[in-house]
Design a protein around this nucleic acid. Structure first.
Lengths: 345, 345
DNA sequence: TTGAAAGCGTTACCAC
DNA sequence: GTGGTAACGCTTTCAA
């Protein structure tokens, strides 16, 4: 495995000259450069990124901290990040987070420029103190689907999204509208779902509807949870005529439960989700579309920008980039049928 | 940012001793160790992986080369890898491959121990010559969903899978069975689909059925492709009564086309897919299940094993680990209805 | 058991 | 322009 020294020897020049050629320094005579390039070629030399990193104090690596298993939508976001980084010279190191402990571990070890030059944190509410530590360490950081004081972030207005979904159901004439989302006290501290619930409650209040406690349910973003909650909901004396699930994955569970209970969607029960993941199109789920891929892509770009900026300017201008939400009406929502539905006043 | 020297100074010991403590060498007096550990703690010292890697000649990193965007199934496999690596001390670097050029690039630069200590290549048929280069470079390598001479691999018997699917349709009484899969001349050189097609042809031959050229179609693993091909198939004078799509994603397209053509599944047309990705369960698709997650997990473990093995033994015993396929019968296949179907003898 | 010193492959600073 | 040389932070060998 040839080193820079071998190249230098072979080309009959000094170490420094090879390095200069490598890094495109203009202070090299054309003829010398050619000779060095030639030697590099014949020797099949390739710079050692580790050594380069050690010397430079950076490692050409971007760390992505992502709750990979927890959200189906994370994958789509990750795709965006990958696409954004693809043209850059940065490698992408994946840090999966399955538990809060996990997060602490990773964030702790990543507060160092030597594991990753920049950090992309997805969907994980990061304690202000952690953020502070990261900021101090000088590692540029971008949050995607999360917010933090003084940190550049790509966000979605989940309250607005929750409003959109609920308003759609209200507009269709529904009264007994159930909500299913993450537990506000979930161990990760995910807040998106809670925000959506806020939107739900706000719209209901505006419509003069009472928020029935038996219609508000919580659980992780899993299909099984949706199926379970759906079954409970449909077994109620006064069942809902519509369900707003704060994720498409949960929504599919609700739909499965409806089928199981012999209910037709949307005739007997309307279902709306959130995210617009790939499967939603397949099954015709009405939902609130989040630009998942774009969020990752934009996050990646922002991080690359921060990395490209001269160190002193870094982090001085944190920006929050809101992404547009869009109501996608497909075939799982419709006006309530008179035969069924709430009899509440 | 404290270095090992700071720790040494603070603990009043030499550099080497700190290093020994760090690496769990037994040749350190308990009292000394305690003092060092103490210093490490108060200083908040953390070893620099880059420096460590440079010195050691490795970087505690596993490279995963994966056609991320090309196959939905790749994500599931990736999940498995992440899970396998999670407990190890290796970081996972993701190399996306969107085009053959991409592949060359990555593989070229990864033939070096300094970017990744080990390599996991997914679903990408790697030219024997590349494999040779990698083998020579001493980087342990594991193939998942691909095969190569002399390389440890996790594989599925796609011919057998193709047989399973086709036999299921034949057993149901179908005669005009269409096939949709990757173009055998696809630019990546993916072969799984072609293997499945082999199984399809074999079963048809055994059943005494002619393989109708108009019923064998090719295209990328995209839903749109399935929809397009489905439309063409259903417009035939003598349309098929069943379709075997070599991926679930294509199968969903076929189903969409059926709905569009006013055909009921499975009454008018049976559809079987391949993979059993998450959505397949949701939509009740009959399919051949591949243990995607497991394949990634096993691949990760095998790579970790290889990495743990003493260098000389590496690669001496490449093994091929076949994974079990399973026919999952759900609701998209049924016997052909008499009213429709082929009239061929 | 411990300390000192020699690398690992680069980059960057300093003379020439 | 170009060639030495000192870092970068760690592991490891060699003495002591």
């Amino acid at each position: 495995m040839p080193t820079i020294a071998d190249v230098a020897a072979s080309a009959g020049v000094g170490l420094g000259t090879v390095s200069r050629v490598l890094n495109g320094s203009p202070k090299v005579r054309a003829e010398t450069r050619a000779r060095v390039l030639d030697a590099i070629d014949t020797l099949g030399y390739r710079p050692n990124p580790l050594a380069r990193g050690l010397s430079l104090g950076r490692c050409q690596t971007v760390g992505v901290v992502v709750p990979f298993f927890t959200h189906a939508s994370a994958v789509e976001r990750l795709r965006g990040v990958v696409a954004a980084l693809d043209q850059s010279r940065y490698d992408l190191v994946l840090f999966n987070v399955e538990s809060p402990v996990h997060r602490e571990e990773h964030l702790g070890s990543l507060t160092r420029r030597d594991r990753a030059d920049g950090l992309l944190i997805m969907s994980l509410p990061t304690p202000a103190e952690e953020l502070e530590r990261l900021a101090v360490s000088g590692v540029p950081i971008v949050l995607v689907d999360a917010e933090g004081v003084g940190v550049t972030a790509v966000v979605t207005d989940d309250v607005a999204g929750g409003r959109m979904a609920t308003q759609h159901l209200v507009d269709l004439g529904h009264h007994a509208i159930a909500f299913l989302g993450d537990d506000p006290a979930n161990s990760f501290g995910f807040t998106s779902s809670t925000q959506r619930e806020l939107g739900y409650r706000a719209v209901l209040a505006e419509a003069g509807e009472e928020v029935r406690r038996d219609l508000v349910r919580h659980g992780p973003h899993e299909r099984e949870v949706g199926a379970q909650v759906g079954a409970e909901l449909f077994a109620l004396d006064d069942p809902p005529t519509a369900v707003f699930a704060s994720s498409d994955v949960q929504a599919t569970g609700i739909i499965a439960a409806a089928a199981h209970a012999g209910l037709r969607v949307p005739e007997d029960i309307s279902v709306i989700g959130f995210d617009d993941v790939e499967i939603s199109g397949y099954i015709g789920l009405t939902t609130v579309r989040q630009p998942l891929f774009d969020s990752g892509f934009l996050g990646g770009q922002l991080l690359l920008d921060a990395l490209a900026a001269p160190a002193p300017g870094r982090g001085d201008h944190p920006q929050v980039h809101p992404l547009e939400l869009e109501l996608v009406i497909r075939t799982t929502t419709a006006p309530p049928t008179s035969g069924r539905g709430s009899t509440r006043g």
